[in-house]
Design a protein around this nucleic acid. Structure first.
Lengths: 179, 179
DNA sequence: TGGGTTTTGTACCAATTGGTGCGGAATGAT
DNA sequence: ATCATTCCGCACCAATTGGTACAAAACCCA
């Protein structure tokens, strides 16, 4: 299932056929439809799994370091770990929103709600760091905008160094805004 | 052709079938294949048209107002004009990059190069506004990141007001950085 | 009006899509 | 070993995909 999720992550929903999925999961057609209802339902499961892992990633970091550091490490990890030689696939939630909006709005909304959760978690980290609730919400919204932007940019052929720099300057701004 | 472009813009490449295109263009199948080589080639034409119009939009604004105002009006127009009751379709270039990356990399690169042009134009406006070349490039890159982010965000159900606010604060930052 | 060229409507094609059903193989308990 | 049950490979299906062939129609200049 991890492989299937990665496939959806990289290629999106429409461009991934069931045949491809079966091959990478190394199971038969019957087994697939026995375990999952639909291609669509299965995609949602993968989407949820992806979101869950992403939230967990931040939560775990938060237990080990100051909250703002945890946030920053989240952005940096997304650009180092996920982008090997194989290239970066961006954020599955962002990808899904842009692919399905105007095609399957329910699906796009589902991904969008996950992004809301992520933004809420950003806010939590910022209040933890001592920001006032209102200000934390503002900053979280800004970080989400930054996230969406950099995830798009990461699917282009822009140099990694440049992204790192953007992250650095953004978080310098965030930190200065908190002190 | 405008209608066809709008269709691709809203639904993306894969989700738009030839049959739908023919219907909205109100032409027959033969006429289509006589005028355009492929679905893919036709999509590229639409993409180029969209990019051309976007660049023109900025250029025209630049002839009528200070360069930074022109940039700001570009962002604001994208959110008022394009987003009627029918909703906002974001930026066709950004949409294409995210849809086709990992599926048809050549197509994604094509859209990405258009974004490079757009970013270059951002840079021109900023140098016009008196920024030093290096600084202008930095700011242009930041604006492109902002553009990518807000175009994603605009396809979610986030309130318009919020976007306007983001634009305002971003440009306040840009202006203060220029003075 | 006539003949030749372009345009266009439509039937048709092979390939692929997501999804179902069946028959046999593996499994496990007695 | 036997039986029942679960599992799975594979054939099959209808629908849709992008693309082509071909003939009829519209057009234009003489």
């Amino acid at each position: 299932m991890n492989r299937a999720m990665a496939m959806f992550w990289r290629q999106g929903y429409q461009a991934t056929s069931i045949a491809e999925l079966l091959q990478t999961m190394d199971i038969g057609r019957s087994s697939f439809y026995a375990a999952f209802k639909d291609k669509r339902s299965f995609f949602i499961e993968c989407l949820d799994l992806w979101a869950e892992r992403t939230l967990d990633l931040i939560q775990r970091s938060r237990a080990q370091m100051p909250p703002v550091d945890a946030l920053q490490s989240f952005f940096e990890r997304g650009f180092v770990a996920a982008s090997g030689a194989k290239g970066n696939w961006g954020c599955m939630l962002v990808n899904t929103v842009l692919e399905m909006a105007g095609v399957d709005d329910a699906l796009a909304d589902h991904a969008s709600r996950h992004l809301d959760q992520l933004q809420a978690l950003f806010g939590d980290c910022l209040t933890d760091a001592g920001a006032e609730p209102v200000r934390a919400q503002e900053l979280a919204a800004m970080l989400m905008l930054f996230n969406e932007g950099i995830r798009v940019s990461s699917r282009r052929r822009v140099s990694q160094i440049h992204h790192r720099q953007s992250i650095a300057t953004t978080f310098r701004l965030v930190r200065s805004s908190l002190s």
